[in-house]
Design a protein around this nucleic acid. Structure first.
Ligand SMILES: Cc1cn([C@H]2C[C@H](O)[C@@H](COP(=O)(O)OP(=O)(O)OP(=O)(O)O)O2)c(=O)[nH]c1=O
Ligand SMILES: [Mg+2]
Length: 470
DNA sequence: GGGTTCTGGACAG
DNA sequence: TTCCACTGTCCAGAACCC
């Protein structure tokens, strides 16, 4: 998204706290971002435990390597920013302002969007069948990795994407429940049946969330977005026993950001909530003004720190401030355009056209990867490749797909990731047609000590004699 | 100049 | 089969093609 760039030293040259932070305070992992369920958590304690359990690991070394690379990129962008001339900045400001004006002229506040997100989804599904788990700290996943945790566990600082052994240290009584995708899929189906009542064309993002254009529903039911959200949550609870949170606003991005601002993903834990952003330009502008840029979907940890480190920007309002002229000069055209639209609170208000999945693959790629105990043995690695290719081929067959571009993914014991791709002479459908290329790619990397191997097929198409599934 | 392929990486859930 | 996952999308930059 972002790219090397230049700088503007005066904005952040001397702004650091005088006291040196303890090393664990400096360890910015994904867990340092507060999330739903984190109220009343001793964040310092959590951060210290995470740091102590990480600091001597290969994983930690790799994180440091990435941090150094990010720092270097930031330094290049600062330099470039500092080198910008007043003439360049003035010209850029004119074009940015023209773009803002034209975006503003086409702002569409006529639609009503709802973003729905299930609360603690995987954990809630398990609690449905085993109610006794509700009062126990529980995490879904294993000792290696946690997918999500219930509210009791979150109070201990346990959260998504946290390795289980660290979570166990934070909360020794933690109960682990293994992943059970068939259950989540079944629950998602029931939830989606409810979503369809409000918008038959709803778009799901993963198993547990969806974007709904409820404009038509509201008109037909003669209700407000707020009332529709309450009704949707009521029907979801009635049909599934699960709770969800909803954001309502004039477009999809705002609907999600509105909920993220104080519900999901916020410091305050508010499950089963709904959040409405009024359809007025003033409301949108004032909401965006103080909204942390990080709350915008697509602005992650890295982009957030680039914006802060290079431009001293942390809110959407600041994105539109004096620094706006630097955006197109420091970031790619697409990134800069995206930042502007996002900061203005502008996003698509219509569903994209549907693709016919009986003709189109319905996806761009399909992959399969596995983590295992460090492995050096070449024969064992080749056997692993065979297994992965077998299961990939089986997955592709289940959707009647064949592909022409195969990628081998390796994660070394050092956590360094390598991908090696090959374009096949013709589309491959069965494992036997994929394996030779995969083995060739693998052998070219040997000797290596691996902790993960994966295979991915792209350039997909539906093969001619594919049966239409149900 | 354009296109394509390959690689690494950000992001999301 | 584990002491930091797995699946999928998109993008930028480099290398290579014409
Ligand atoms: C964030 C995340 C989620 N998941 C899975 C587990 C989650 O239950 C499911 C939905 O993700 P989320 O909606 O991000 O989380 P959640 O539903 O568990 O909790 P919240 O109440 O805050 O919405 O996706 C992962 O497997 N890995 C991840 O890193
Ligand atoms: Mg959720």
């Amino acid at each position: 998204m972002a790219e090397p760039g230049g700088l503007e030293g005066r904005f952040n040259s001397g702004g650091n706290a005088p006291e040196q932070p303890a090393p664990w305070q400096d360890y910015q992992t994904v867990f340092t971002n507060a999330k739903a369920g984190m109220e009343g958590v001793d964040k310092e304690h959590v951060q210290r435990v995470v740091y102590e359990m990480s600091k001597d690991s290969a994983h930690f070394k790799n994180e440091q390597r990435k941090a150094v690379a990010l720092e270097a990129k930031m330094a290049r962008m600062r330099e470039r920013s500092a080198a910008l001339t007043p003439a360049e900045l003035a010209a850029a400001a004119r074009s940015v302002d023209a773009r803002i004006a034209s975006l503003e002229a086409r702002r569409d506040l006529s639609r009503t969007w709802l973003h729905a997100d299930m609360d603690c989804f995987y954990a809630a599904v398990h609690e449905l069948e085993r109610p006794e788990l509700k009062s126990l700290p529980m995490a879904v996943g294993g000792i290696g990795m946690i997918s999500t945790a219930n509210y009791v566990a979150r109070k201990f600082g346990v959260r998504s994407a946290m390795p289980g052994f660290i979570a166990k240290r934070l909360c020794p009584q933690l109960v682990f429940v293994p992943l059970d995708f068939p259950r989540y899929t079944a629950a998602a189906e029931r939830v989606r049946a409810v979503f369809a009542q409000f918008d038959p064309a709803f778009e799901s993002g993963g198993l547990d969330e969806a974007y709904l254009d409820i404009t038509d529903y509201c008109r037909e039911a003669g209700c407000s977005g707020e009332e529709a959200a309450a009704e949707l949550r009521r029907r979801v609870r009635e049909a599934t026993g699960l709770t969800c949170s909803a954001g309502v606003a004039a477009n999809r991005m705002l609907a999600k950001a509105r909920a993220r601002a104080e519900g999901i993903c916020s410091d305050i834990n508010k499950p089963d909530g709904q959040y409405v952003l009024p359809h007025s330009r003033a409301a949108v502008i004032s909401f965006m003004d103080t909204l942390p840029a990080r709350k915008i979907p697509c602005i992650g940890r890295v982009t957030e720190s680039l914006l802060r480190g290079v431009l001293d920007v942390s809110t959407c309002g600041q994105l539109l401030g004096p620094q706006r002229a630097r955006l197109p000069l420091l970031f790619s055209d697409t990134s800069a355009a995206f930042f502007l639209e996002a900061a203005l609170g502008i996003a698509p208000t219509r569903h994209p056209p549907k693709v016919d999945t009986s003709v189109e693959p319905g996806r761009k790629g399909m992959s399969c990867e596995r983590t295992f105990r460090a492995m050096r043995d070449a024969a064992a690695q080749e056997e692993m490749a065979r297994q992965l290719v077998d299961s990939l081929a089986a997955d592709m067959a289940s959707e009647g797909l064949e592909g022409r571009n195969i990628t081998l993914k390796l994660k070394l014991s050092t956590f360094e990731v390598r991908t090696r791709a090959a374009t096949l002479p013709r589309h491959a459908r069965c494992a036997a047609d994929m394996l030779p290329a995969v083995l060739r790619l693998l052998r070219a990397e040997m000797p290596v000590e691996l902790r993960l191997m994966g295979v991915r097929m792209a350039a997909l198409r539906k093969h001619p004699d594919a049966e239409l599934v149900h």
